[in-house]
Amino acid sequence: MASLQAMTALGAREAAMVTVGSVTIAERVDVALASVAARRGHDLQPAANAAGVPLPGPARYQSGTPYSGFWVAPDMWFVEAPFATHELIADHLKAAFGAAASITEQTDAWVVFDLAAPDLAPLMERLCNVDFAGVSDGHATRTVIEHLGCYLVRQSRGNLRLYGPRSSAQSLLHALEAAALSAC
C-alpha cells in the first residue's frame, strides 16, 4: 500500500517470540482491531449476524472467520480480523454497520501477545487478579498487569491473548518474562 515500513511495538521489524521455561510469548503483528460501539437506540445484532461479526455478551470472547470479537464495555466490543486482509478494518466494519455503530480503528493502540504453556495459571497468578484457573475458555476481561490496563482473553488453560498498551510494550514484555521465570 505505502512505501513506509512498519515497526513493531517493540521497535523491531519482525514480531518477537520469547520462550521462558515452559512459557512461549509470541508477539502478534498480524491482528487488525477496531472498536464497535452501538449508537443509542440501535441493535447491532442483525447487522453483526449478516456480516459475520461476533458480538458476544459481557466478559466473553467469540472467535470466527474472518472476524472475532470480545465485549469491552456496555454496548461496545473490540473486533479482530487478520491484518493482511483487513488492515482497513474500520472501513470494513463501517460498511457493515452503517450509522448504527461508531467504529474506531484500534490496531496500533495495542501490543498483542499470545501466551502458551501447558498451564498458564501459575504465570497469571503472579501477574493479575484474574482467576485464570477458575474462569472458562472464552473469558475476556480487562485487568491490570504491571500497572498497565490490559485485555486478557483466555482461549484455554494453556493459551491466552493479551492486549497491552502499545507504548508500554517493552515494560509489559519484561513483566511477562520476569513472571514466567519466577513462576514456571
Binding site: V72, A73, P74, T143, V144, G149
Partner: peptide, 10 residues
C-alpha cells in the same frame, strides 16, 4: 460514585 477505570469504564 466509583469508576471502573481498569475494567469496563462503567
Amino acid at each position: 460514585l466509583w469508576y471502573h477505570e481498569q475494567g469496563d469504564r462503567s
